[in-house]
Design a binder for these strands. Sequence first.
DNA 1: GGCATCCTGACC
DNA 2: GGTCAGGATGCC
Length: 276
Amino acid sequence: MPELPEVETIARSLQPQIIHHRIHAVEKLDWERMVKTPDPMLFRELVRGRMVEHVGRRAKWLLLMLDAGWTMALHLRMSGRVWVATDSNDEPDQHTHLVLRLDNDYRLFFRDPRKFGRVQLLDSHGLSELDQSLGVEPLGNTFDPETLGNILSQRRTVLKSLLLNQTLIAGLGNIYVDESLWHARLHPQQPAHTVTASETCRLHAAIRDVLQRAIAHGGSTLRDYRNGYNQIGQNQEYFSVYGRTGQPCLACGFAIERLIVAQRSTHVCPKCQVLR
DNA sequence: GGCATCCTGACC
DNA sequence: GGTCAGGATGCC
């Protein structure tokens, strides 16, 4: 799925296209399980006529801030794609399950072949609950080495699991966890509470660098991800370990290995990332 | 923690 | 036909 950098890139690319435009109607909604709340009938009713005031992001949630206090929160999960179709001849395909008609005749498409994606319409209370269910923003001001150290020191779980846990640090997924750990020279199976202060500083810096670079490159496109203009990202050209099994480590030349950690495909340099 | 589940498509 | 995939949840 889109992870933090991809969702951030989508949010930024949607802003100039949809802010200050009104949603005329929900033009297509053919997979109602996609709507988490409220029920699909009410969803259609409440969305009709709303003005998009801002587009933002919280963790991996894409947030369309609407007038009347509503927020449409979209989660793209594994294969979701959200973009603005500007060509009126461009028809939504069988995997495009949500289409919003805008007042400039543009349409917002939410395409998701695997149907894992979700959308919900939240009032301020619902938005606050969503916010509180998520951990610290790794690119936010409050995420410093001390904060990370406190999170690490209290858990005996392995680093990979901890970094994937959205209730602790919110926004990392499988790609950027592997990339961050490689840059920090830490093994994904190292127990969190054994990470030293200097390693914590390295990990903190690595997470921020990896995410910022990914955003600068417009996100990583493996298969499905596109930005709000339906364009691919470039960050996949800059991976250090993810998907580089058998290829030489960029730091030491040793072959990158693939293992399974926390039931997820995991990539490491066995020489740079030694398990202690 | 580990595992199944929600889905479809790509690839072998 | 089997396996794998950028995610999250729920169950033992």
